[in-house]
Design a protein around this nucleic acid. Structure first.
Ligand code: SF4
Ligand code: SF4
Lengths: 129, 129
DNA sequence: GTTATTATAGACCCATTAAGTCTCTAATTA
DNA sequence: TAATTAGAGACTTAATGGGTCTATAATAAC
């Protein structure tokens, strides 16, 4: 079980956005160059981040992407969910009973991880201790 | 990010083994019938569980699989690791620095989940509260 | 208003993996 | 010795991840 490469790129892109430009948008071309990935591919992930409401896009010359001012504290979970979706890591075939223990345990475990990821904000990384 | 179907089958198989037969081995044929999956396919997962030391195989007539007596308290994590492997959910491409924050956060999150899965034993499900 | 520059959308392709089948072999017991 | 079981591995198929390419739309600079 692994997070996709796309999530990796998205996290790095967000890290750049939060650390570099508080107001000026940065183009996907520049971002892609820094991350060492093709611009067209990276733009897919950025578009997902826009749709998730985490960043804003500015078309036209000197355009690009910037953080949404309204959302200063973006969590790791926000980014991961934007890219990977919110489906559970475990979905059994039969789904007999609502109080099934197997399902319960694995989903509780997932909740543990998600709570942690929700508590860690991307902005913490920009201003290191 | 999802656990494979194989993990699902393995968990169910283990649940049967722990709840039904403390000493008599149960054949893959019977197990497969209960789970609604092909015997040859299920045997792959059972073989992995054997190699992980979680269960014992008994060849020959009236053979099958049984829990290892030495390992009464098998955790969910044991089973999942046996099937999925122990690779991390996050592996970055560059791996610049050992104190990289992105890596740190995601791996800590994973550790949260694994700790929980390690604490939950399969035997708890057999003897419900 | 025209042109250059940017994001957005989607069709498309390729490699890898998941999921499953089939067959042959080895070990053990009746 | 024959029946019954696990174990190993080749093979197939479908799905997904990862990525390219092209065409369109929106905006700013000129
Ligand atoms: S026992 Fe639980 S996990 Fe298994 S099929 Fe039933 S509901 Fe799903
Ligand atoms: S910043 Fe961290 S996660 Fe990203 S490539 Fe470097 S070491 Fe890996």
């Amino acid at each position: 079980m692994k997070y996709s490469q796309a999530t990796d790129y998205a996290l790095h892109a967000m890290l750049h956005l939060v650390s570099e430009a508080p107001d000026k948008p940065v183009s996907v071309h520049l971002l892609a160059e820094k991350l060492g990935v093709s611009p067209t591919y990276l733009s897919k992930m950025l578009t997902k981040l826009v749709k998730a409401g985490l960043i804003q896009s500015v078309p036209g010359a000197n355009g690009g992407y910037r953080l949404r001012r309204s959302q200063e504290d973006i969590s790791f979970l926000d980014i991961i969910h934007a890219i990977e979706g919110t489906a559970s890591v475990f979905e059994c075939s039969l789904n007999h009973s609502s109080e099934c223990q197997i399902q319960q345990v694995v989903m509780d475990a997932e909740r543990q991880m998600e709570e942690y990821l929700r508590s860690r904000k991307i902005s913490d990384l920009a201003r290191p201790s």
